[in-house]
Lab assay of single mutants.
Amino acid sequence: MQFKLIINGKTLKGEITLEAVDAAEAEKKFKQYANDNGIDGEWTYDDATKTFTVTE
């Protein structure tokens, strides 16, 4: 399945997509990506659109 991450950071904004088996795997990958890029914020997930959002 394809999942999307919307980044609303203080210095980094944008979207990325990835393939994952389920939402838990996608969340783990997205949070690792955010951590690697210094993004720390409030996370939400919309199951209907398979979209994660992180807002700093």
Rank of each mutant, 00 (worst) to 15 (best):
A23P: 05
K13C: 03
K50N: 11
T51V: 12
I39Y: 05
E15S: 05
I16N: 12
T11I: 14
E56S: 02
D40I: 12
T49A: 14
M1S: 07
Y33Q: 06
T51I: 11
Y45Q: 03
T17I: 09
T44Y: 15
T49D: 03
K29G: 06
Y45M: 03
I7M: 12
D40L: 08
D47Y: 09
E19G: 11
A23I: 13
G41I: 01
A48Y: 10
G14W: 07
L18H: 14
A34Q: 02
N8E: 05
G14N: 06
K31E: 03
D46E: 13
Q32W: 07
T55S: 08
A23W: 14
E25P: 02
G9S: 13
Y45I: 04
K13V: 13
K10D: 12
T17H: 13
E42A: 08
M1D: 08
I7F: 11
D47S: 12
E15Y: 03
A23V: 10
Y33N: 03
M1Q: 13
A20H: 08
L5E: 00
F30T: 08
K4L: 15
F3K: 00
T53S: 05
G14I: 12
T44A: 14
Q2Y: 10
A34E: 02
L18N: 07
L12I: 14
K10Q: 14
A34T: 12
K10R: 04
G41V: 01
E15P: 04
E56Q: 06
A24E: 15
G9F: 10
E56V: 07
E15H: 03
W43H: 01
Q2P: 14
E27A: 06
W43Y: 02
D40E: 03
E27Q: 08
Q32V: 12
I16R: 15
Y45T: 02
D22V: 07
G38V: 04
D22S: 04
T44R: 13
D22M: 06
E15R: 03
I6C: 02
Y45V: 04
F3C: 01
K4G: 04
K31N: 10
A48R: 09
I39C: 03
D47G: 11
W43P: 01
T11M: 04
L5K: 00
A20V: 04
A48K: 10
K4F: 08
A20K: 03
A24P: 07
G38A: 14
D22R: 07
Q32L: 05
A26C: 02
K10L: 10
T17K: 09
T55F: 05
G38R: 07
L18V: 12
F52S: 01
A24Q: 12
T49Y: 12
T49Q: 06
A20F: 09
M1W: 05
Y45E: 01
A48E: 10
E19D: 02
D40P: 07
M1A: 13
E19R: 06
K29D: 15
T44C: 05
K13S: 13
D40Y: 11
I16V: 09
T53F: 02
D40N: 09
L5Y: 01
T53G: 12
N8C: 03
T44V: 11
E27R: 05
D46S: 06
E19K: 07
A26N: 00
N37L: 11
L5H: 00
D36P: 02
Y45H: 05
W43E: 00
A20C: 03
N8K: 11
T11C: 05
L5C: 04
Q2S: 03
K4Q: 06
T11P: 06
Y33A: 14
T55M: 05
V54L: 07
N8R: 15
T51M: 09
I6A: 03
A20L: 05
A48C: 03
W43A: 01
N37Y: 13
Y33W: 12
K31M: 10
D46Q: 11
F3L: 01
I16A: 14
D22W: 08
T11D: 15
Y33M: 07
K31V: 10
V21A: 14
K50P: 01
T49G: 10
K28T: 09
T53D: 02
F3T: 00
W43N: 00
K31Q: 03
A26P: 01
E19T: 15
T49V: 15
A24M: 12
I16F: 11
T49R: 13
N37C: 03
K29E: 09
G9H: 15
V21C: 05
K50C: 03
F30N: 01
A24W: 04
I39L: 09
V54N: 02
F30L: 10
I7W: 09
F52K: 00
K29C: 04
D22I: 09
V54P: 01
D40H: 11
K4D: 04
T55V: 09
Q2M: 09
M1V: 09
N35H: 15
K50T: 05
M1R: 13
F52H: 08
N37Q: 11
G14C: 04
K4A: 06
L12Y: 14
A20N: 08
K4I: 15
L12R: 02
V54E: 00
L12P: 01
Q32H: 11
D22Y: 15
M1E: 13
Y45K: 04
G14F: 14
F52W: 09
E56N: 02
Q2F: 09
K50F: 15
I16K: 13
K10G: 11
I39Q: 03
A20E: 15
G41H: 01
W43Q: 01
T51R: 10
T51G: 09
T55H: 05
A34S: 07
E15L: 02
E19S: 15
D46T: 11
G41E: 01
T53M: 15
V54Q: 01
T17R: 07
V21Q: 13
F30D: 00
T17G: 07
Q32S: 07
W43S: 01
G14A: 07
N37M: 10
D36L: 09
N35A: 12
D46N: 13
L18G: 13
E25C: 04
K29S: 10
F3N: 00
N8Y: 05
A34W: 02
D40R: 07
E56R: 01
Q2H: 15
Y33L: 09
M1G: 14
K13F: 07
I16E: 14
K4N: 13
T17E: 08
K28R: 14
T55K: 09
D22N: 15
G41P: 02
K29N: 07
M1C: 04
M1H: 09
K50W: 07
E56K: 02
Q32P: 02
A34V: 08
V54A: 06
E25Q: 10
I39F: 06
M1Y: 08
M1L: 11
A26L: 00
F3G: 00
F52T: 02
A26I: 01
K31A: 04
L18W: 08
N8W: 09
E42S: 13
I6D: 03
F30M: 04
T53H: 05
D22Q: 06
W43G: 00
A23S: 13
K4S: 06
D46K: 06
D36H: 14
Y33C: 02
E19N: 05
T55D: 15
A23Q: 07
A26T: 01
E15V: 04
I6E: 04
F3Q: 00
K50H: 13
A26K: 00
K31W: 09
N37K: 10
L12C: 03
D46V: 13
K29I: 12
T53C: 04
A48W: 12
V21L: 07
Q2R: 15
D22C: 04
G41C: 01
A20G: 14
E56A: 03
N37T: 15
T51W: 12
I7Q: 02
L5P: 00
G9T: 05
M1I: 10
L12W: 15
F30P: 00
T44W: 05
G14S: 10
I16W: 10
V54K: 00
K13R: 08
N35W: 06
I6N: 03
K31G: 03
K50G: 05
Y45W: 07
E19V: 13
M1K: 05
K31C: 02
L18E: 12
V54W: 02
D36F: 08
E27T: 03
D40T: 11
N8H: 09
Y33T: 04
K28N: 11
